[in-house]
Amino acid sequence: MSTAPVAQNPLINAPSAPPRRPRVLFVGAAFGAAASVLLVAAELAVYLQVRGQLASAGDATFPEGVVLPLTPGSMGMVTLAMSAVTISWAVYSLRNDDRPNAYVALGLTLLLGVAFINSTVYLYQQLAMGVTASTAGTLLYIVTATHLLMVVVGMLFIAVMGFQALGGQLTGRDAEGMSAAALYWFAIIAVYVVIWYGIYITK
């Protein structure tokens, strides 16, 4: 009697998968993002409260002759919306070990971040309003400057993770750092959606 050869399962002798790394950076970035969102939200709430009080008293929000332009704010919104695509592209590429695409996407995200800063500075120039011109004006600068600070922090975070990717530390299996940076960047975009609607659209 002959016995048929038993097909050997190659996975039987394979080493067990290493334990999943705790997502420390991702969770920490989520907490940091929540804190940043609340910081801007609290400032925005004070701005909207002051604007509402001025409106109910029949006063203008800003001093006479000052007009809040919509175009630079909307350009900023479009810019950040595009950066949402590029940062997602970067995370997807890194997870699939497609490093050339990841580098291009990261570069584009940083470029769009710079473009957003440029559009906000252009808005300040068009506004041509001193910091001390009015209470609402001061608050406008506080809210938008805090958001700009968030953008700068987000860009630094992405740049550091980009350098880690260049150094080979972020691989397809473990691209947590880039996911954390992307999470923070999405928080930046979400905050700007509220600023764009609350400050520039509803004026």
Partner: peptide, 12 residues
Amino acid sequence: PVLVAMLVITYV
């Protein structure tokens, strides 16, 4: 963060 926001506004 809300307290920090109040401090930022107060400082300015």
